[in-house]
């Protein structure tokens, strides 16, 4: 389902590469250096956990990889191409087509139904004319994803009518509907009870194993991190491979 062999791919090269990334925030009088030269890679079809203490900069790193923010220095490469310095329109496009993101607080759009939320990336991608051409296919795809996550009966529910676990599954479906190469998840189980959290993790593992989707999972929970192929620890703004 996920096509990892796209144009510009250099075979053998890591899917995502973060090189010497630095990020500092101005806080009060001085600068708070959150990331001080992070080097980090994700192989195609890899599953990496990033752990670290609260405030260690995990979310900050994830936002940089997801092109939601720009590093002060350093580079981010996707499939061998530098992406952090692209013009904003190209970055918007990449974010839409190549990267899926899942957040701790789900971040669904409250005015849209579950199905519409899942369709949102495609609504963003297509112009009005294109949308009417792709509408049927897009809907089928979105319904298939929701079905796969056990939500076929809740297509037209608004987010506030869903449980936390259901909302997170809708959010994952939304992240996948655009067929990205990379899924970035920021504490996706943080707000969930153990059972639903385990369900979400099972889903992610399954996506990684059966669909070959590359995943970066941010967490501060050691036990969750262990589900990944590899664990990366953020300490004092640098990476320690554990």
């Amino acid at each position: 389902m996920i096509d990892t062999n796209r144009d510009g791919d250099r075979s053998g090269a890591p899917l995502l590469q973060v090189r010497g990334v630095r990020k500092a925030y101005r806080s009060g009088g001085g600068m708070l250096e959150v990331l001080r030269g992070v080097d980090f890679e994700v192989e195609p079809a890899g599953f990496v956990s990033v752990i670290g203490q609260s405030g260690s900069g995990k979310s900050t790193l994830l936002h940089l990889m997801g092109l939601l923010d720009a590093p002060d220095s350093g580079e981010v490469h996707l499939a061998g191409n530098r992406i952090d310095n692209l013009p904003s329109s190209r970055r918007d496009r990449l974010r839409n087509t190549d990267i899926g993101m899942v957040f701790q607080a789900y971040h669904l759009l409250p005015e849209l139904s579950a199905l519409e939320n899942v369709l949102a990336p495609l609504l963003v991608r297509f112009s009005i004319a294109e949308w009417f051409r792709h509408k049927g296919e897009a809907r089928r795809q979105a319904e298939a994803l929701l079905d796969r996550f056990g939500l076929s009966g809740r297509l037209h529910h608004k987010p506030r009518q869903l449980s936390g676990g259901e909302m997170q599954r809708v959010a994952i479906a939304r992240a996948l509907v655009g067929q990205p190469r990379l899924l970035l998840a920021d504490e996706p189980t943080g707000n969930l009870d153990e059972a639903s959290g385990a369900g979400i993790l099972d889903t992610l593992c399954e996506l990684n194993h059966t669909d070959g989707l590359s995943i970066v999972l941010v967490t501060h929970d050691q036990s969750i991190a262990r589900r990944a192929d590899r664990i990366v620890r953020l300490v004092a703004g640098r990476v320690e491979n554990a």
Binding site: S89, L94, R95, T97, A120
Partner: peptide, 13 residues
């Protein structure tokens, strides 16, 4: 927040 979500989904300014 919705605007942030849309941007994370690739919506342009």
């Amino acid at each position: 927040r919705d605007i942030g979500i849309l941007k994370s989904l690739g919506a342009s300014s």
